[in-house]
Design a protein around this nucleic acid. Structure first.
Lengths: 128, 128
DNA sequence: GAAACAAGGTTTCCAAACGAAACTAGGATA
DNA sequence: TATCCTAGTTTCGTTTGGAAACCTTGTTTC
């Protein structure tokens, strides 16, 4: 009888599971907006920056780099003048587009319900 | 001809759109894990804490409070001894369960692809 | 009657992360 | 020489995050 180390399946509920790191990457406001924006054709750095209003260059740069490292986004440099850099979803990233779009735009469809809930909550808290 | 202020539709790509605040709430590692855990029957505070390994009481408490304020989660107190507090998804929160589950568990299904991508990326960065 | 335990939190404190603004690089254009 | 372009990086003050200790109400144990 041999002794083997059982390879546990990945479990995001476990503290030290590497999936936690990935979840932390995609469960992020800016990452979701970027992934959502990249649905469709490739987009250049400053184009993304203009479209996602309020994102800083630093955060855009950092987030793209992490998404690229995790294989969700590809980065292509064209030696034009000035240089052109295009970002696009990889096939892996494309597996998330539907989910990302649903989550990113959920607030747009349910904003009124959320605002109503907040008013109710705040009114009740007022009485305490 | 009368002049009216056109009420623009909510747009999460706009900087000051209130949907951004809601996106920030749900596009969060802990919030997603909590919402995922609440699928099904109501769960007590310490039960959630035990299940989502590594979450601190402070973060659990804060996140639940925000989710409750936004109308995604309900909080029910039972006057037992000691007191029992149950959290559950509201109907509004339930509209997110499918999406949340897909995103929260995406990493479990794609971890190997992500790890491979990271290795490739790091090896290429090494050469620079 | 003094500890210990239970549930459900809050407070404290230090480190890590964030964002706005300034700065950089390489080259083209005026 | 000065300015503009894309695509970033750096700086620095502020905010947020997590770990650990503490709190409250009430029961059981010693």
């Amino acid at each position: 009888m041999e002794t083997t180390t059982l390879q546990r399946a990945y479990d995001v509920y476990e503290d030290r599971c590497p999936t936690r790191l990935v979840l932390d990457r995609i469960a992020d406001k800016w990452a979701l907006l970027i992934l959502d924006r990249l649905r469709g054709e490739p987009v250049r750095f400053n184009h993304i920056r203009r479209d996602i209003k309020g994102i800083s260059q630093k955060v855009l740069s950092q987030t793209l780099k992490k998404l690229e490292r995790d294989g969700l986004v590809s980065r292509t440099v064209y030696p034009t003048v000035p240089v052109t850099v295009e970002y696009a979803l990889t096939p892996l990233g494309q597996t998330l587009t539907e989910t990302v779009a649903t989550l990113a735009h959920w607030a747009e469809r349910n904003m009124d319900a959320v605002l109503t809930a907040q008013k109710t909550y705040d009114a009740a808290a007022e009485l305490r």
